[in-house]
Design a protein around this nucleic acid. Sequence first.
DNA 1: CGCATACTTGAGCGAAATCAAGGCCTGTGG
DNA 2: CCACAGGCCTTGATTTCGCTCAAGTATGCG
Lengths: 249, 249
Amino acid sequence: MSHQQHGLGRSPINLLDVIIPGLCAGCSARNIGLCDALADQDLHFLASVATSHTVAKGRVFITEGDHAQHFFNISRGVAKLFKDLPDGRRQILGFVYAGDFVGLAADSQYGFSAEAINEVQLCRFDRTEISSVFTAFPAIERRLLDIASHELVLAHEQMLLLGRKTAIERLASFLWNLNNRLDVNRTEADPLDLPMTRAEIGDYLGLTVETVSRTLTTLRQQKIIDDSANNNVRIINHGRLSAMASSRA
Amino acid sequence: MSHQQHGLGRSPINLLDVIIPGLCAGCSARNIGLCDALADQDLHFLASVATSHTVAKGRVFITEGDHAQHFFNISRGVAKLFKDLPDGRRQILGFVYAGDFVGLAADSQYGFSAEAINEVQLCRFDRTEISSVFTAFPAIERRLLDIASHELVLAHEQMLLLGRKTAIERLASFLWNLNNRLDVNRTEADPLDLPMTRAEIGDYLGLTVETVSRTLTTLRQQKIIDDSANNNVRIINHGRLSAMASSRA
DNA sequence: CGCATACTTGAGCGAAATCAAGGCCTGTGG
DNA sequence: CCACAGGCCTTGATTTCGCTCAAGTATGCG
């Protein structure tokens, strides 16, 4: 939990971007150094409310309905957030990657479960203690409000997708959104990495495995994507994919 | 997303609950007096960033894609928030009632449109000025984060509904949620008021008008509801309706 | 190698959409 | 007062998209 090699990364500053991912050991993905504005005792204070954890692939680390004691910041790996119906039907609410927060959207109990898709490393914060962090660093709270607002925008887009789009539009939107997530280690030409299974894509898009599979086949046959490698998709025709996603009115 | 004030745990004193609805002339719905802790000059300051407006039935007062200059607090009436696809397909994200906030979930541009379902009165705030309010009253910002988090919880529930529930489960969930919004002027036995049309219910639940109509007929035939009056629904069998909604895993 | 898990493909089915028609209410104007 | 227009709602007939069921093909791992 030591905050390592800091001092240098100054930026047009986003406190939270800078601080949180750098808080605990192992948070390497977005650890771009620590803000000048923070004194050492501030860092110790922040670090005192966070602990680092490794979650094995397939492990559920948040269970819907449990008391929402913590919230998390993903350092490495990918996790899925989901809700189940009593008979086993499942809706995946989203996939979270390094740098993402999980558990903000909770009342006193978690409203969803979370499971590691591959090995995940995360920072865990105590929700009861975080309010003292807010008081000490109002900028963090402001930033969390921004994050929550943005998540709401994304949730709204997904509601449009789930309520009104066809299967092929759902897949196109999914791939197009993945493509547009800026990822430091990826250029437009690189194939997209799909760490999740077809079944998980289906549970995210409100479709069955079979429909996901068939629809990807269709997109391949139309030379819009190339998914010859199973966990990779290369977008061939960006224009047509984007048009199919039809995200904007 | 719509019913923040109603669902949230109410604390002994909640600044925002008290202040905002009482801010501008005409905000009568939830104007329950002003907090002792606030001095007169504070109130004047708050009032200086808000203006009161009346929106006629059918009028669009937020357009998706426009610069998000304002956010709103509904004082009276009901509005719908929605996103459209280019070909006219529409997804209603939520219905907002007196006391609800609209426009929090915006980046620099609005991510949805809003239209008055009946005559609506609202308080309009300038987003650029609101940050000074946050600085002066951190409790308000804290409260907005709570509200945004709770809206996210509701959005997640709606995603489960849109992605995985059947038509009858969607209607049951819709009616059951309406029933559980505590409304000062309503007891369990009173019929639910449905100010929106069947088409709007369809656009909210990801269904067509016809399916909404047929499904309500089914619920009536099964003696679960009584919708003999068109804009009113009386729940007859609460247990079965709640079971059909199957909201909890 | 054998087993398990993931993925694909096909055939048939079904829930909800679409297409179509008619009824009902409310307001308006003769 | 009635006639009529335009929404809104309901109901019926038919179609369709995606689901279910089923089988077969990779792929990965002990």
